Simulated assay, not measured.
Amino acid sequence: MLLRQLVALYSGLWLCGFSMAALVRAGLGLDPWDVFHQGVADHVPLSFGAVTAVTGAVVLLTWIPLRQRPGLGTVSNIVVIGLSVDAGLWLLPTWESLPARVAAMLAAVVLNAAGTVLYIGAGMGPGPRDGLMTGLVRRTGWSFRLIRTAIEVTVLVTGWLLGGSVGIGTLVYAFGIGPLIQLMIPAVDRHLPGFHAVARRAPDLAAPDPTPADR
């Protein structure tokens, strides 16, 4: 079981990073966090992958007041995704034709969903950004939908103001990643423990956002 978890963890993280690079090369807009990473990379002497890793480390510091505990997956997330992004940017071309760019964008979203399912399914600790979300949900009692939306909108607007790429790919990612992940979960749920652990701890994702009085 441990070997299976490790293979799922590292293959999933590598797919996540490589898909991020493919989304960059497609040039049709990035996911919210990558909009932020690209915006920051335009203003500092660091590569896109290095900015991704540094951002992960900074976000990890926010876990301290949230009393969120890291695991092997947390540290691996910071290192492996940064390396994978840079490797992908080095290997992948910049596509010129619109059909090729659209195909690359769609493939990137699918690969990111597959990587996310494998990485979460491994059950070896959340990445910095996922841990920030779950920590805030646990501490505030607010819904996942409210917390995740607030984080992604803040990150997206900040990245856009710094010059990050926003486009149709941003919307496809935002609205497509959730259904794709949900569709892929059964393929790994019988073989990996991660989703069973999340189901035991997480509040009902379909629950409505709390009213001010409930908070």
Rank of each mutant, 00 (worst) to 15 (best):
V7Y: 05
L9K: 04
W14R: 13
C16P: 00
S19N: 08
L23N: 14
L23W: 05
V24Y: 10
L28S: 02
D34E: 14
D34W: 09
D34V: 11
D34S: 15
V35P: 00
V35Q: 04
H37S: 08
D42Y: 15
P45Y: 10
P45L: 07
S47R: 09
F48M: 14
A50T: 13
V51F: 00
A53F: 01
T55G: 11
G56I: 01
A57V: 13
W63H: 10
I64W: 15
P65N: 01
R67M: 13
P70K: 07
T94H: 15
W95L: 14
M105Y: 09
V109T: 08
V109E: 05
V109M: 07
A114I: 08
G115L: 06
T116A: 10
Y119Q: 03
G121R: 00
M124Y: 02
G125V: 04
G127M: 05
L136K: 03
R139Q: 15
R139D: 14
R139G: 08
T149M: 15
A150S: 15
E152C: 10
T154E: 11
T158K: 07
G159P: 02
L161G: 10
V166P: 01
G167N: 06
V172F: 06
V172K: 06
Y173H: 14
P179W: 09
P179I: 08
I181G: 06
L183I: 09
R190I: 06
F195Y: 12
L205Q: 14
A206G: 15
A206D: 15
D209Q: 11
T211W: 13
P212N: 12
P212A: 12
P212G: 09
D214Y: 07
